[in-house]
Structure formats: structure tokens, C-alpha cells
Amino acid sequence: MSSPRVEVIDRLCKGCSICVEFCPTRVFEMDGFIAKVVKEDACIKCMQCELRCPDFAVKVHTE
């Protein structure tokens, strides 16, 4: 199985840091005013980030 690709859509991210805080494996970090994927390999596909992002800005592509 291929590893997920975690995507932050910069245009939509408003930098609330919800994804940063609620990702159990700390895949994201804040980069100024938007979130950035820093440890994609650590992703366990729990989908918390995609579910919680209020701005439709995170996508977890699992295949």
C-alpha cells in the first residue's frame, strides 16, 4: 500500500493550527500564518486533520 500524501491547500488555509494540534503524530507545523506538512511519513491515516480543518484546506490522499 502506498503511503498517504497529506496536502495543505495554501490558498484555503487560515492558519488556525487545529491540524497541528490534533494530529497524533505531529505531521504538521505552523509556517508563519499557514500550516505546513513536515513529517508526512509519520502519518497514520487517522483522518483527524481532514475531518477537523474548518477551511477545507487539508486533504489526506490514501491511495
Binding site: 484555503l12 487560515k14 488556525c16 487545529i18 474548518p54 477551511d55 477545507f56
Partner: peptide, 9 residues
């Protein structure tokens, strides 16, 4: 999109 709501709303 983006919608009008504030960050974290």
C-alpha cells in the same frame, strides 16, 4: 471557497 468565516471558526 475560501469561505468568509474566521480562522478556527
Amino acid at each position: 471557497l475560501p469561505h468568509i468565516w474566521c480562522p478556527g471558526c
